[in-house]
Design a protein around this nucleic acid. Structure first.
Length: 240
DNA sequence: AACCAGGACGTGA
DNA sequence: TCACGTCATGGT
C-alpha cells in the first residue's frame, strides 16, 4: 500500500514541476492573451490585479473545464473588465454575462465575480482569513483555498475532487474535503513554511494534471504511472 | 447522445 | 451532517 507522500513523489518525478497558478500574459507580437505557467517560481503575486485574476479564475472554473474558464478570463481581460474597481461599481450585467458565457453558470458567476471584486478591494493589501472567504457567497472550500495558496502564498492543501478520487482509489476509505486537508497538514507539518508552500502548490497541480489524464470521474488507466500500486485497479482488474 | 469538466448553494430529512 | 436538485456551456 502506497503512502500519500509516496504518491506525490511519483507524480512529481513523472510529470515535473507544474508552475501553477497559470497567469494571463500578452504575447508581444500578436498582442493576444494566453495562459503562462512558471515552473520553479513559488513567489506569491505582489500585485492586487494578479491576486484578483487568480480568484476570478478559481470562480470561473467551478465545475467547468479550465478551457471554458480560460476563454472567459481572456474575454474579460481583452475588454478591460478583469479589474476589481470596474466590477465592483456598476458594471453592465448583460455584457458581463456575455463575456463569461463560455464558463457556464454565468448568472451565478457574474455575481460571484462582483462580490469577489468588492471584497478584495476592502482588503487593501491584507491577507484574508479562510473564514472571511468562506463567508462570501460563491466561495466554498476549494475556491477559498485556491485563493489562499496561489494568490496569497499561504501553505494550505486543496483537497479537491481529483485529489479525493485518487487517494480513495489508491488507499480506500472515505475522504471528505476537510478530512483530507487535515491529513495533509498533519503529514507535512515537519516542513518549514516555504517548503510546505512548495509542496502544497505542486501537489494540487499534480493531482489535477494526473486527474485530467487518468483519474477523473471516469477512469483512463491505460498508461497511468500509478497502475502498479493502485489497489483499486488491481481489485477491479476483471472489469477492464 | 449521454457524460464530464480544477464547485457551491439551498433545501429537506 | 448528508443526500439531492439546481445552475449552463462546450468538448468527447
Amino acid at each position: 500500500m502506497p503512502t500519500i507522500e509516496g504518491i506525490i513523489e511519483i507524480l512529481s518525478a513523472h510529470y515535473g514541476p507544474q508552475g501553477w497558478w497559470p497567469l494571463l500574459r500578452q504575447d508581444p507580437l500578436t498582442r493576444t492573451w494566453q495562459e503562462t505557467y512558471h515552473p520553479g517560481d513559488y513567489r506569491p503575486p505582489t500585485s492586487q490585479e494578479t491576486r484578483f485574476e487568480i480568484g476570478a479564475g478559481a470562480i470561473l472554473t467551478q465545475n467547468t473545464s479550465w478551457q471554458g474558464a480560460l476563454t472567459a478570463l481572456i474575454s474579460l481581460k481583452q475588454s478591460g473588465c478583469l479589474e476589481p474597481r470596474r466590477l465592483a461599481e456598476e458594471p453592465d450585467i448583460e455584457t458581463l454575462c456575455r463575456l463569461i458565457r463560455s464558463s457556464g453558470f454565468f448568472n451565478q458567476k457574474q455575481e460571484r465575480l462582483r462580490l469577489w471584486a468588492r471584497f478584495i478591494l476592502s482588503l487593501k493589501e491584507r491577507t484574508p482569513a479562510r473564514a472571511e472567504l468562506l463567508a462570501l457567497k460563491g466561495i466554498g472550500p476549494e475556491t477559498a483555498d485556491s485563493i489562499l495558496l496561489y494568490a496569497y502564498g499561504q501553505p494550505v492543501f486543496i483537497a479537491d475532487a481529483y485529489a479525493r478520487l485518487l487517494i480513495t482509489r489508491l488507499l480506500g476509505g472515505t475522504w471528505t474535503y476537510e478530512n483530507l486537508a487535515g491529513e495533509m497538514n498533519h503529514l507535512f507539518r515537519h516542513l518549514n513554511e516555504p517548503d510546505r508552500l512548495k509542496m502544497f502548490n505542486e501537489a494540487h497541480a499534480l493531482f489535477v494534471y494526473h486527474g485530467k489524464q487518468h483519474c477523473g470521474k471516469r477512469l483512463r488507466c491505460q498508461g497511468c504511472i500509478l497502475r502498479s500500486t493502485c489497489s483499486f485497479f488491481s481489485g477491479a482488474r476483471h472489469f477492464f
